[in-house]
């Protein structure tokens, strides 16, 4: 399975393309792409969002099922989806 990931232009936050062509913050709400054709079409939609200055740098990532949840295959994309592995305020800094 694949998904489309990007950064939102206005605040840079990581977002995923959803089924209705919108962009969402949570990986769980994004669109799961199961065929090559799906992926190609959605990438086109993402490219339009770039032209409309909604997002920058969209691309496809591989996602696997993990106990009913979605989990990007690459460490890099897991970190993008779930935040730094050291915590949003790094562990040790006394944040939440």
């Amino acid at each position: 399975m694949q998904m489309i990931i990007a950064n939102r232009l206005i605040d840079g936050r990581v977002v995923f393309l959803d089924d209705s062509g919108g962009w969402v913050n949570e990986i769980a709400d994004g669109s799961l792409l199961v065929s090559q054709q799906d992926a190609a079409e959605q990438l086109n939609a993402a490219q339009r969002a770039v032209e409309e200055n909604e997002v920058v740098d969209p691309y496809l990532i591989d996602v696997a099922a993990d106990g009913g949840r979605r989990r990007p295959v690459l460490v890099r994309e897991r970190i993008r989806a779930f935040g730094p592995s050291v915590g949003l305020v790094p562990q040790g800094l006394g944040g939440n």
Binding site: N7, L9, I10, D11, G12, R13, V14, V50, E52, N53, V56, D57, R76, I79, R80, G83, P84
Partner: peptide
């Protein structure tokens, strides 16, 4: 101008870099 679409990302990137602004994994 970037937010209104007058500048594309390719045009804007060198301008933001001159002001220390990068795009990283999670945000700017």
């Amino acid at each position: 101008r970037r937010l209104s679409g007058e500048l594309t990302e390719d045009q804007f990137k060198p301008l933001r870099l001159m002001n220390g602004l990068y795009m990283q994994l999670h945000a700017y």
